[in-house]
């Protein structure tokens, strides 16, 4: 049975470069996502602060259950990872593919520690019966760190593709590498805000 799966010749690849090069790093439409994501998180941060003001006692008391040590390690891990991504992008731009691969590889390894630390942080809490249903603070906490974790996992997938692109292509796709790097920096930035709001402000 003959089944044709393509009904039209694919048009030539336009590489998706819709803006003049050099205007913004990475794919221009990616900024759409970054800004949108920051907007959503921003609204949640504002709401968090408002509800924190309303239920100051509850939030303060609940915050004591959070482990600042793990939060700090998470921050260090992500910041290091972000730094290596930036260095790796720089190296790739300079044409040093091998060096860039190594640097992004280190960034990936650091990033991969983050989900593990998250599990180390969450599982004992959940085991001790501190669930999202506990109170408003923990709902905020699990929801927002959870969504951030989804972002981290997605970022790791993207970094994986960046690594593949660096290793296989003779001339690395700079647009893609920059886009991945920007995304990773955004994940980092979001964590810094989360860390400050949930762990530090007391």
């Amino acid at each position: 049975m003959a089944i044709t799966t393509a009904d039209a010749e694919p048009l030539p690849d336009t590489n998706g470069n819709t803006t003049a090069p050099g205007l913004v790093p990475g794919e221009a439409s990616m900024w759409f996502f970054i800004l949108g994501d920051l907007l959503i998180f921003g609204v949640y941060f504002v709401c968090y602060m408002v509800y924190r003001g309303e239920h100051a006692g509850l939030f303060l008391q609940s915050q004591r259950h959070l482990d600042q040590g793990i939060g700090m390690s998470n921050t260090v891990v992500l910041l290091t990872s972000s730094l290596f991504v930036a260095l790796g992008t720089e190296a790739a731009r300079a044409g040093k593919a091998a060096r860039a691969t190594r640097l992004v590889g280190i960034a990936f390894a650091c990033g991969a520690v983050f989900p593990i630390l998250k599990l180390v942080e969450w599982l004992p809490k959940l085991g001790a019966g501190i669930t999202p249903g506990e109170n408003l603070f923990f709902m905020f906490y699990y929801l927002m760190t959870g969504l951030h974790l989804v972002h981290v996992l997605l970022g790791l997938v993207i970094l994986g593709f960046v690594l593949r692109s660096l290793r296989s292509a003779s001339t690395p796709n700079m647009k893609f590498i920059e886009t991945g790097g920007i995304y990773w920096h955004m994940v980092d930035l979001l964590w810094l805000l989360l860390f400050a709001l949930f762990y530090l402000i007391r």
């Binding site: 039209a8 694919p10 048009l11 690849d13 336009t14 998706g16 819709t18 794919e27 439409s29 990616m30 759409f32 996502f33 949108g36 994501d37 959503i40 999202p132 709902m139 929801l143 959870g146 969504l147 989804v150």
Partner: peptide, 26 residues
């Protein structure tokens, strides 16, 4: 997609909207 059937920014917009599905879990 390489045929540019729908604009690239729409793809990011869709993924962005997808995030709100996670929020509803509560």
């Amino acid at each position: 997609d390489k045929n540019n059937i729908l604009p690239k920014w729409l793809g990011y917009y869709v993924i962005w909207q997808l995030m709100t599905e996670f929020f509803v879990a509560t």
